[in-house]
Design a protein around this nucleic acid. Structure first.
Lengths: 206, 206
DNA sequence: CGCTGGTGTTCGGGAAGTCGAACGATCTGG
DNA sequence: CCAGATCGTTCGACTTCCCGAACACCAGCG
């Protein structure tokens, strides 16, 4: 989770406390010094690091600015990186009219999510989507791929790349022979790509 | 900025106000309903949406939870996306001992950066890196790829995926015939991946 | 017409965040 | 051994955030 939404447990205070202490330590700053730079009272800082305290967002932003650190780094606890291997053979494919998708990895960076798919387009038909949340990135590696997005038509050769806002209706077609490509689906955490996506979105905005 | 660090102007309040209104509208929730779900007073919500207010992080988290939206989406203002096409033929390749890399796209989400490369590994030799900042993701699409990371050896077939912290020394080898793959290089903004990286970087890093 | 159930707004006060100042604890140099 | 300068913590005050209640407004309905 985390990167997913945000903090989940009730211990928002503790997460901040920990991250704050660490960030300050990494920078070799004293509490007093940080207080000076962030124009935040020493008292306030002390309490925050003690886990006592429920700071205002403005306070958090001041810290973020002074520490040159994104808010997410203060409010989320992040995980380390290791070594990960995913075998295509061990992943259940999601098959559509003309494509097979295998989810290889789901990355969560800050509040964004990037899903990495192995995508194979069969020459038979056409894969259509009415539109969904997020941005699609496709890197073609073999074959010729036809992409249609909101009226526009584009043909891609091996090595070519396309990206588009997926809310617009779009479709994929293998032009001559099967196509191999990598699909990156990028969206904001909390949203649901929901590849079928019936979202109306009333009107919005003041 | 923004994506950069966080909010910059003093109008943190206004950003939140706008994002909140929009998020609530998208979900078709009434203020009262949201108040109920988030266990936040209607009064508080009303003030927040009016731009009057400097909420506590706990309040923000409650909203984040109720709206199923990451905090960054509430606190940052983000821009839309369009349609982008990059032709491999028009990109100057970065050639190494055994690989050709073409930078297709550079994504910046929040404070993170993801670079998308078209990667071709030639069967001749071996591409070695002593290590650099970031995480490497490789999706093999054709051929067999040998990867060596900090001692471990892995062989990948078409469709397979590997990811590892790139600070460790690593190398790529095409096992039989040329390999086509997609390389994602992920690192935190402000850092420099420096792919050649003769950097010894004594210890550091957890 | 008034009643009911919904909306989003404004108001009072109890609770809590923020700040400056004072505090004890270290560490330094004279 | 004691001034001086830091460190991080604690205390009282001022401010303000948060909530429940009361408010005005609108739509549907008997």
């Amino acid at each position: 989770m985390v990167g997913g939404h945000s903090g989940q447990d009730g211990s928002v205070r503790d997460v901040l406390a920990t991250n704050l202490r660490r960030a300050r330590a990494e920078r070799g700053l004293s509490l007093s010094e940080l207080a000076r730079r962030s124009t935040i009272g020493k008292a306030t800082l002390s309490q925050l690091e003690a886990g006592t305290g429920n700071p205002t967002i403005e306070t958090v932003f001041s810290l973020s600015r002074a520490l040159e650190l994104p808010i997410s780094d203060l409010l989320d606890h992040r995980r380390p990186a290791g070594l990960t291997v995913v075998r295509a053979a061990e992943v259940e494919p999601l098959s559509g009219a003309a494509v097979d998708l295998r989810l290889l990895r789901r990355l969560e960076v800050d509040s964004a999510v990037v899903e990495v798919y192995d995508q194979r387009v069969r020459p038979e038909g056409r894969q259509t989507s009415l539109g969904h949340v997020g941005v699609e990135h496709t890197i073609v590696q073999a074959g010729r791929l036809g992409v249609e997005v909101g009226g526009e038509r584009v043909e891609l050769d091996a090595g070519d790349y396309i990206a588009f806002d997926a809310v617009a209706p779009h479709s994929y077609t293998a032009l001559d022979g099967p196509v191999r490509s990598v699909l990156l689906l990028q969206y904001r955490g909390g949203q649901q790509p929901d590849l079928v996506a019936p979202h109306p979105t009333p009107d919005e905005q003041s």
